[in-house]
Structure formats: C-alpha cells, structure tokens
Design a protein around this nucleic acid. Sequence first.
DNA 1: CTGAAAGCGCTTACAG
DNA 2: CTGAAAGCGCTTACAG
Lengths: 329, 329
Amino acid sequence: MVTARDVAERAGTSTAVVSYVVNNGPRNVSPATRDRVLLAAAELGYRPNALARALSHGRTSSIGLVVPDIANRFFGELARALEEAAGARGNLLLIGDSGLDLVREKSHIAAFVDRRVDSVVVVSLQDSPDLSALHAAEIPVVALHPVPETIGASTISIDYEAAAYAAVRHLIDHDYETIAVLNGPSESAGAQQHWQGAARAAAESGSVVIEHLHSEFARADAAQLMLDRLARPERPRAIYCSTDEQAYGVLFACHRLGLAVPRDIAVSGFDGTEHSGYSTPPLTTVAQPIQEIADRAIEILASNTSDIPVQEIVPYTLVVRESCGVHAH
Amino acid sequence: MVTARDVAERAGTSTAVVSYVVNNGPRNVSPATRDRVLLAAAELGYRPNALARALSHGRTSSIGLVVPDIANRFFGELARALEEAAGARGNLLLIGDSGLDLVREKSHIAAFVDRRVDSVVVVSLQDSPDLSALHAAEIPVVALHPVPETIGASTISIDYEAAAYAAVRHLIDHDYETIAVLNGPSESAGAQQHWQGAARAAAESGSVVIEHLHSEFARADAAQLMLDRLARPERPRAIYCSTDEQAYGVLFACHRLGLAVPRDIAVSGFDGTEHSGYSTPPLTTVAQPIQEIADRAIEILASNTSDIPVQEIVPYTLVVRESCGVHAH
DNA sequence: CTGAAAGCGCTTACAG
DNA sequence: CTGAAAGCGCTTACAG
C-alpha cells in the first residue's frame, strides 16, 4: 500500500506536511504545497493507515457495541441507528453479537479493549453485566438498560417498570381478568422491571389474576412454551410479552392451536420494531424510541467531559393495534 | 494501559521475550523466564495492544463483512454464522451495514481498506459491485451471490436460477395457473436469476401465465405494492417472492384484504431463516445453507494460497409448508 | 510555513 | 535462551 512517505517524496515535502494536509491541521500549510500534496495523494491513491494513525494519535475513532442477538430485529434496528449516529461524528461502530451466550459477550468486550475502542455501548444479557475490563482500561460505557448504580456506567433507557405497568393496565382496561406475563429468563436485563410493573397494575385492579412465565427470547422457545401452556385448562385471557419476538411466538402458538387473536386471547409485545405492524394480526406493543436512544448514547459518549456516569430516561410509546382487542374505552 | 515494557521490567527481561511468551513464539523461552513473564502479565492485567501488533505484524486478524441490511433476519443469521466461523480461527468480524444505501456500502468498503482488514465478505446491493478499492489494496474478497466473472472476486452461493425454477415449478405442480413473481429492484443482486428461473418454469408448462413485479426488499414496501396489486381484478393465484421479507409483506396484504393463504392465494418465500416456520401461515420457502456458506467463505479466505478467484455452488433446500397449499402430489 | 526526529506499542531478524 | 535495535506508518512537539 502507498504510505505518507511515498506521497511526501512525490510532492517533494515531508511526511509531517502530508499529515497536516490530510488532517487539515494542526499546522497550516501554504496553498502551493497543499496542492502538490493533494495531487500526489490523489495520483497515488493514498489512504492513511488507520492503525498507525490510531496508534500515534491515541484515539481509534471507533465505538464498540455489544448486543445479545444481532438477528433480533430490535437490535438490528438499534445497531443501524447507532452506526448512523456514530458515523455522523466520524466514528466507526464495531458490532459484537453475543449470540445469547455470556462467554461471547465477555470475549467481545475483551476484543474491544484490545482494539482500544474509544467507548462502548452495551446491551447485556445480564441484569448486572461485568464491565471490569472496560473500567480497567478507562473506556467509557453506556448501557441501554437499567444496571445497578454501583456498576459505574452511564445508562439510557425507557422506564421499563412504567411501560410494563402501562401495557398491562391497558389489557386490564379491556376487562381481561386473567393475564399471563411472558418474561425473559429471570436474570436477564429488565426482567424484574417487567414483572414489577405488571404486578403493580394487577394489584391495583384488585380482581385480576396474574401469572408469571419465563421463556428464552427466541421466537421458537416462546412458541413451544405457549403451546404447552395454552393446551392446559384455565388459560389466560391475555398475554403480556416482554419482547416482540416472544409475542410472535405466542401468535404462532395461538394459530397452531386454532385460537383467534384477539378474540380468544389478547397479546401485547414490547420493543416496537417496524415489523410489529405487519404481523397477523398487527401487534399492540411498547415502542422504544430507537433513534433517540442511539443519538443520545453517542452524544453522551462524545461529550464525555466528566467521568461521572449519567442516568437518562427516554419516553416509550404504547402502540395499540389489533392484537389486544377492539379498543374498550 | 499497561504495556509490554511494564511487563518486561517487572519480570526483569526484555519486551522481545514478553512477545515470545505472549505469542508462544517464534522463539523459545526458558521455562523459568516464561513463568516470570506470565506472572507479571497476570499481576498487571496486561492486554497486548491489537493496533500495535497489527501494525508491526502486518495482519489485523480481522475480516470485514458488508451486508445490505443488518436488520433483515437473513443477514443477521449470516453475520452470526460468519462471526462464529471467523472467531474459530482467531479472527474478528467487522460488520458493515449498508442500510440499503449504495453510498454507505462504498464507505464501508473504504473503511475496511483503511483499517487493513485481511479480507472481506460482501453481499452487495448491486448485481455488479464496485470492488476496485479492495483490489487496489490487494484484499481478497468473496461475494455471497453471483457476480460477473470479470470482477475478480471469489463467489459462493446457491444456484439462484435453479432455486427459482424449483420453487415456481412447485407452485405449478399445485395447478396454479397464474403466478406473480415479486422480485427485488431490477439491478439488485440475484434479480435476473429469480426471474429467469421462474420464467423458465412457466414457459416449460405451456399454459401458466406469469407476471413480473418489483418492490424494495422491506416488508412494508412489499405489503404496499401487493395491497395495490391485489385490489385490482385478475389477481394471481400464487406469488413467488424473491425474499422471505417480501413474502411476509404479501402475507400481511392478504390478511388486510381478507384473502386467505393458501386458500385464495398461495405464497412462497426465499432465504429460509428460522422465522419462516413461525409466520401465519408458516411459509414455503427456499432455504439457503447459511452455516455452510459462512464456513466455506471463511475457509476460502483463510486458505487463500492463490489469488485465483474460486466459484462455488452450495445446495439449497425447498422447504414446503402451509403457505403454498396442501401438497398436491 | 516546513523538516528532522521522537514516539505510539508491538514484532522480529540480528548478534551474542 | 536472551537483549538491543530497527521498523511498521502515522502524529506532533520542537527548531528553524
């Protein structure tokens, strides 16, 4: 590959000047010299080596992202939004897919440290992720879900508890008296908040019977669990799911069992990707403001003037569609 | 961060020896020295700087991936499989999401060149992608769809034409006499093959009437197009879609218009991700061997003894489910 | 405005 | 088996 030295020789100058021209600084260069360098660079097809630049400059202009499952639409949309926000500031987003595996989550974090990313955005599999490697390397982190304060990371997310409360409250307003909460694994991020919000809504109503179920986040797991559950007597009239993926699994189980949604069973989801509007039937769901979350996350990381973690709450939207029944009020 | 120099000092040796120990070579180190280095490294929490290593070593141990749309399940599953295959060989996969935008596709390729990835796997938006930047940097490429021979890249993919033929042939065997082909944009990768395969099957049958439609790959676009098309008279009895995403859009349009699948309209998809088994109704589709494609792609790039591009065809599977109707033979 | 030189943190011939 | 030194390709004080 062609180096700054090659360009300098052809332009009859030094590598320092080549650097000043390519980076528009930090020193001024006379217009004539500048033109010669630009011409030489263009003729040679010079592309600065990002590794060398990062090594001497001390910044890689890259941001690491850890997600539980890149094949999940929600994280796909999130990754895209983050990549755009990062790109707008000249940063490259490195995506690390945990594949629902804790070991891989950890190894991605290690790889990010080794490659000296400037900062990391994390959506962990766990309630309380291990960020020690990041802290040791003094790499700022923002988590996109609530984490314990003691963990020392910035946080930006919706209020899961409030969103769960609102969604279940909505089901109760439809006069559904028996409600199942299909949650993720109990240690998973947000699981507690989903259950607490739902339980609070049920308790408030007095009469509603609520039941707590757990499945993996994968559509197939949720489907299997619900095929079993719905075959048993006393099935719930409505199901609140902690992710859209699980809700699609429920929709599938209902279809398979000949149960009509929402006539026999009402369903609500959580995350609100574009796809939630295209299921059969379209899904009532809690929509997360993906764009806003992404923009703010990158902004927080960019303007990291202090080391003090910030905690931010962004608003969710309850999107009411067919799957929860005809609007009752 | 702690450097090799820090470790060397604590172990009472040189950075060269630290390197030999950490990398298990290329020189031998006496057991005693080795233990001292390992101990010092552990105590200090030493992590070699991957940038510096890459700069001096000349390899980054990273592979770039360009996909049209990471939020599309098919590419999500593909990215995961590639990441695993790459990781198994000690390589990191860098994912570049084009977001269905040619400019971004190009800028990701440029970013990969700048970061000196060892090789690139590309799924382009175009039939005939611009790989000149990669060629100039002598970075080997493998495309996961057919590209013109002249482009000088290795290729590994199913035989799209044959798969399209088989799927449409299957619809014809169901005695559907009017078939629509819902293709992607006309310049998109594979579009020609889809149409040619479908047209060949129709021509062979003699009596079947076939029509060619184009939509973007997004579910929403396909849905909108079909809402319009199916509202017109003389609607087709069956629809062959060039991606599962488009098929889901068709399913949605049918649901919205009160048309039952497969009773009123039969639908088939293409790609065959895990989700195709969970739609309403489950989707007949052409399944691509994602794992095999990923493994072979990484293998080809790893064992790049020659610069001669290789062209490989892997087998597809026609997965018959409810959406195309009760099995006719 | 410009050049020679040091330095980023590694790896690897080259001597010993 | 081990160390001093050069080199990977940049950036940036430091002189002039």
